[in-house]
């Protein structure tokens, strides 16, 4: 080995030393194993964990965003519905109020009509009654006056006939 390598420029350092090579191989493999066990392993686990964490967080954020959107949509639907309800309630109230107004007016008008009617009837009755009373009185008074005036000239029958004539006339004239 030495003979060969010494003839090359590589021989300047003393050639290939098999012991060095084996030592290097041994050291490197030990270093590789130890670092993998104590440094790279935990580090890569940590990086993996962080990756998972970030991915998880992104997923969660996405989910809560969707949830929020859904809830917002629901809330606006709810609001819309409520608004419609309120609108319809107001509409109903307005309708009912109009109906009631009409009913009240109607009944008031009917009542007035009725009162007017009955008043008219009463007036008519009263008038008839008054006329009747007047008739009776006039008849009585006429009889009294006539009996005073023509007491002596007329018989009972003539008187009666005459009075009735007057009364009838009076009734026709009215």
């Amino acid at each position: 080995m030495q003979v060969f390598t010494n003839s090359l420029v590589l021989g300047a350092e003393g050639g290939f030393l098999v012991g060095d090579m084996l030592t290097q191989l041994f050291f490197f493999i030990v270093l590789l194993v130890l670092l993998r066990m104590f440094a790279w392993g935990p580090l890569m686990n940590m990086m993996k964990e962080r990756e998972d964490y970030v991915a998880n967080e992104i997923n969660t954020a996405e989910k809560s965003r969707e949830e929020a959107q859904r809830m917002q949509r629901e809330a606006s639907e709810e609001l819309k519905k409520t608004r419609q309800d309120a609108q319809s309630i107001i509409e109903d109230a307005r309708k009912t109020a109009g109906q009631q107004e009409r009913d009240i007016l109607e009944s008031a008008r009917n009542e007035a009509e009725r009162i007017k009617e009955s008043a008219r009837e009463e007036i008519g009755q009263e008038r008839d009654k008054a006329i009747q009373a007047l008739k009776d009185q006039v008849a009585t008074m006429s009889v009294m006056i006539a009996s005073k005036v023509i007491e002596k000239e007329l018989s009972e029958q003539d008187q009666e006939k005459l009075i009735n004539e007057y009364i009838d006339e009076a009734g026709e004239e009215r």
Partner: peptide
């Protein structure tokens, strides 16, 4: 015979 070490390398 072939096992030589350069101690500085080691």
């Amino acid at each position: 015979s072939w096992l030589d070490f350069n101690l500085s390398n080691v």
